[in-house]
Amino acid sequence: MNSSVGRNIVNFFFELGMLKKTPRSGFQFLGSGRESVADHSFRVALIGYTLARMSENVDPFKIVSLCLFHDVPEARTGDMNYVNKRYVDVDEKKAIHHLAETLPFGDDFKALMEEYRENETQEAKLVHDADQLDLILELKEQSDLGNAYAPKWIHFALKRLRTNIAKELADQILQTDSTSWWFEGHDHWWHPHQEG
């Protein structure tokens, strides 16, 4: 590898670090909760993988790749929530193009981003649903903690789901207390063992 390619790759790695520092801006309007774009992308990738394994005739590797890359341009553009997008024009295509020019896999990156934006393949639909399921999970947690506005947001997120499997999982999310994974059925975690 020549030094120019290596430097571009390392710069890309540093740029990815910006996603850990870039807040998801919608929480400002919700009034509670917070996460970075990197936090969000991590769970979206695992949700996407899960959706892929629960579906037929889809490529799990492509879905995870789409999930991991879907918000990478936000390292350059920031995260624009639904209110921001009504007033701010973000040239995401330019951000994608400029980043792709520096990467040896730039064509792959551009193709993934185009597939995600067009949202026509089954993989892209599942990734968009994984994105919304992550939001629904966050909103359910905020609702369980007492945020009265979170259910209103959930209502709109549910309308954006496209696949039956995501709709079924969303129904289950709404029926599940966000603490049940660590609280229910784990009494032994909360009571120290008596040693004789």
Results as ranks from 00 to 15, higher is better:
145 L>P: 01
10 V>Y: 15
43 R>N: 10
44 V>Y: 05
30 L>P: 00
134 D>V: 07
84 N>V: 02
181 W>Y: 06
180 S>E: 10
68 L>T: 02
84 N>I: 09
140 K>D: 11
86 R>K: 13
55 S>H: 07
16 L>Y: 06
161 L>T: 02
25 S>N: 14
137 L>C: 08
115 E>Q: 13
101 E>V: 03
119 N>Q: 08
8 N>H: 15
47 I>D: 01
196 G>V: 11
103 L>H: 10
98 H>G: 06
170 A>D: 14
125 K>N: 13
92 E>P: 00
151 P>H: 05
60 P>E: 11
145 L>I: 00
177 D>T: 06
67 C>H: 00
97 H>Q: 15
196 G>A: 07
71 D>E: 14
54 M>Y: 13
81 N>M: 03
27 F>W: 12
15 E>T: 13
160 R>H: 08
74 E>Y: 08
104 P>Y: 08
31 G>E: 03
97 H>A: 12
137 L>A: 06
104 P>W: 09
124 A>P: 01
54 M>E: 03
125 K>G: 11
19 L>I: 04
35 E>H: 12
28 Q>L: 12
135 L>G: 12
86 R>Q: 15
99 L>H: 06
98 H>F: 12
82 Y>F: 14
45 A>T: 10
160 R>P: 00
100 A>E: 01
158 L>N: 13
54 M>P: 01
138 E>Q: 13
107 D>K: 14
115 E>H: 00
80 M>C: 12
176 T>R: 09
91 D>P: 08
151 P>T: 11
124 A>H: 04
30 L>H: 02
153 W>P: 01
134 D>H: 11
